[in-house]
Computed example of a mutant assay.
Amino acid sequence: MRVLFVCGREPEYVRNQIILKALQQHAEVIAITDSGKNYIIRHVRLFFKVLMHRKPHDIVFVGFYGYLLVLLMRLCTRKPIVFDAYLSTFNTLCLDRRVIKPDSFAGRMIFLMDRLVCRMADVVVLDTQAHCAYFTRLYHLPPELFRVLYLGYDEEIFFPRPAPAEHPFKVFYYGSFLPLQGIEYIVQAAKLLENEPEIVFQIAGEGLRFGEIRALAESLGCTNIGFMGWVPYHKLPEAIAEASVCLGGHFSDNSKAQNVIATKTYQFLGMARPTIVGNNAANAEIFVHGEHVYMCELANPQSLVDAILTLRNDRELREKIAWGGYSHLIERYSIARIGAVLNDILMEVHAPLSD
C-alpha cells in the first residue's frame, strides 16, 4: 500500500515522527512535508508541493496539525483520507488557552471548521477513547468516524539508563507551560514540600505561561525549584535519567487535560522511571494505579505532595511501577505495535476500494 503523508506542523514534531515511523512498518510512505517555522509560508509551500506531486498513492494520511490540509487534500484527490486530528482547535484556542471567546464570531467559525474537516475525512484518528467520546459530543459527529491510536514512544531514543543517585530526591517535569499541563499545581506542591530539604524539583521547558509560573514560584518564595529552561529533544533522556520521580501529568482539570495522555508520560515510562500522572479518564484507559504509574487527583497540589512522599518513602513501590510501566509500554505501545494498529486502520479504509 502506498500512503501519501502530509502534515501541517514540522515532521520533526514528536507525534508526526512516531506516526511516520509506524506507517513505514507496513506501507510505502511518500512524505510531503515542510520544516519551515512560519505557519502560513509552510502551508503555501506544502500546497504547491502537493499540486506538483504525481506519484500514485492509495491513501492520504494527514498528520498533525492538519485541519487546513484536509480541506486542500479533499480538493486535490478522491482517495480516502485518514486524519490525525490529535487536538480540537476550538478547545485549544477557546477553552484551554482562552485566546478567543467561544461564542464570538471567530470562535463559532473555528468550531464549524473543526466539524467540517472531520466530516471530510474518511477516518479521524485521536489519541484516547476519552478524546474520541469528547469529539463525538462536542461536534455532534458519529462515533464510527473515530479510531484510537495511542501515541506510544520512540524506543530508540527513550530506553532505560542506570538508576540515579539516591540523594537528592529529584522530581522532574518538562513542558511548554500550557494551561492544560497545570504546572501551577507542581509549584504549589513544591512549596508544601519546602520542609523536606532532600526533595528538589527540576522543571524544564519554556512556553505560553512561563513568566506567570516563574512569578508564582517567586511570590510563594519557593527555594526548591530549579527552572532549567529549554532542553533539546535529544538531551531529554539525560535529564529524565537523573530523576528519582517524573511527573507525567496532566495536572489541570480542564476538559482537554482530562481527555489526553501526556506525551512525556510514555517517554518517562519508556525509560523505566517511576511516574506520577493525573487521575483522568484517559490515563485510566491504559494505565493501572500502583502497577504502571502512581495517580493523583487533578488540580490538587496536596494530592501530588502525597504521591511524591509515598514514592520517596517506598523504594520497592518506585521500582515496581517503573518496571511495570516499562514492560507495559514495550508490550503494547512500541513503534511496531503502533504500526500494526495503524495498518489495521489503513486496511479498513482501503478495503472498500479494493472490493
Rank of each mutant, 00 (worst) to 15 (best):
L68C: 08
G339P: 03
V50N: 07
V245N: 01
I32A: 10
S303G: 14
V99Y: 11
T136P: 04
H43F: 08
R337Y: 03
N16H: 03
D34S: 00
F64S: 10
V305P: 07
P160M: 01
I276V: 10
Y333L: 10
T263E: 03
A336M: 05
I345N: 09
P80A: 01
E348A: 14
V29Q: 05
G229Q: 06
V82C: 07
N279M: 08
E198C: 13
R147A: 05
I32T: 12
Q202L: 08
L149Y: 03
F61H: 15
E10M: 10
V341T: 15
L138V: 13
D344S: 13
V293H: 04
A322S: 12
L20Y: 09
L75E: 02
V288H: 05
D306G: 08
V187C: 01
A217N: 06
L236E: 02
E198Y: 08
P142I: 01
T89K: 09
R312V: 03
N38C: 09
K170G: 04
E166T: 13
A165V: 13
G290I: 03
Q202W: 13
Q24H: 14
H328R: 01
K49C: 07
D84N: 13
E194A: 12
P11N: 14
F48L: 04
T92Q: 13
R108E: 09
V148E: 00
P164V: 08
A204E: 09
K101T: 14
E28G: 08
I335L: 07
Q17L: 14
R119W: 09
E156Y: 08
Y139F: 15
E348L: 10
I240Y: 11
Q188H: 05
V70S: 07
Y266C: 06
L46H: 12
R137H: 09
G229I: 09
H53D: 05
E12R: 09
Q202M: 04
Y233M: 10
S334Y: 01
R98E: 12
V123Y: 04
R209T: 02
F172T: 06
F90P: 11
A281T: 01
V125M: 03
V231F: 02
Q181F: 05
E285H: 00
H140C: 14
I213F: 06
L23R: 10
A217T: 11
F251Q: 07
Q25R: 15
N280P: 00
H140K: 15
I59M: 13
I225L: 06
A27D: 14
V341P: 06
E316K: 15
L247P: 01
Y65G: 02
T77P: 05
G211Q: 14
T128W: 01
E196C: 08
A22D: 06
K170M: 10
R74V: 06
G290A: 01
L95M: 12
I186H: 14
E319A: 06
A204K: 08
K256W: 07
E144G: 09
C76R: 15
I345Y: 02
C222L: 05
L220W: 08
F268C: 15
V231G: 08
L69M: 11
K235D: 14
R45Q: 04
A204D: 11
V171W: 07
H234N: 14
A257Q: 00
A31D: 10
R74M: 04
L342V: 00
F201E: 03
G324H: 02
F158L: 00
I19Y: 11
D355G: 13
L192Q: 12
I240G: 05
Y173T: 03
A130V: 00
R312C: 02
G221W: 11
